[in-house]
Design a protein around this nucleic acid. Sequence first.
DNA 1: TTTCATGTAACTTCATATGTTACGATTCGA
DNA 2: TCGAATCGTAACATATGAAGTTACATGAAA
Lengths: 147, 147
Amino acid sequence: MKHDSRLSSVLHALLHMAEHDGPMTSEVLGQCLGTNPVVVRRTMGLLREAGLVTSDRGHAGGWRISADLSTVTLRQLHEALGEPAVFALGNRNERPQCLVEQSVNAALDGAFAEAEALLLERFSEITLATLADDFARRHREWRAQKG
Amino acid sequence: MKHDSRLSSVLHALLHMAEHDGPMTSEVLGQCLGTNPVVVRRTMGLLREAGLVTSDRGHAGGWRISADLSTVTLRQLHEALGEPAVFALGNRNERPQCLVEQSVNAALDGAFAEAEALLLERFSEITLATLADDFARRHREWRAQKG
DNA sequence: TTTCATGTAACTTCATATGTTACGATTCGA
DNA sequence: TCGAATCGTAACATATGAAGTTACATGAAA
């Protein structure tokens, strides 16, 4: 199934912005992500609504992070994106009359709820600063390996 | 995003089969599930390949469970269905050159892997017998409330 | 006032689960 | 043997939603 990669996309964009002085345009971010500037505006616009980034028009305009990297968690970003459905699996009917299907739904819902809770807990433990540190480590290793 | 409801469907079908004497036709199961007999054959066919059900053609044909209810777990059924992707969220690129994106992927992959492991663990703890018991309880409660 | 940039509507494309039609193959009973 | 019942499967249709694209309006700065 085709999946929603917006969380991955905004993380990628935000980390590039964190490594970059001054605003970055949708055009440049689109090149980083391998996508269209309009897709960048559409997605980053949700982060703007959540107060995580700002955008400026005109000359020297573009996107900027407006929050401390250590305070922005993956969970916040997931919420800013509208909390899209986490699972590609689900019940056939959400409110079945059939008692058999109610048993099935109850069991599946319980398992999904636990897994989603764990995922969101992990998301809340990871900040942009965490990822920036991880990137810095990879960058050092890459430079060392390069010679 | 539209999700895969086949696990939910086959559970519903199998429990009806467990409550029913003799084989059930794709036509009847389709009515139980609110879907088309061909969809039933297509999905149940995967369970047949896994040895969990048998099918017979012709008069008095149909589908039958060929395993002990207490030994069939949701995880086995998930596997029989081809282990479809669990998450509707995912990375934008699976093998990025970009070190930034590698950090993003590593973090997301870790969180997803933990959540998926928990989900599959729960799936492996739930058998068809578990669900049949739960249904029996709901059925008793329903009869008590009714009368 | 020209250029660069975002904001946004409208439309297209793509992937994929699900639904549908059609027909062949097989089994059983009359 | 015939015919109805039933599965097996290919082929096609539909629906949904993310992502991509085009077009143009709006606003800011040189």
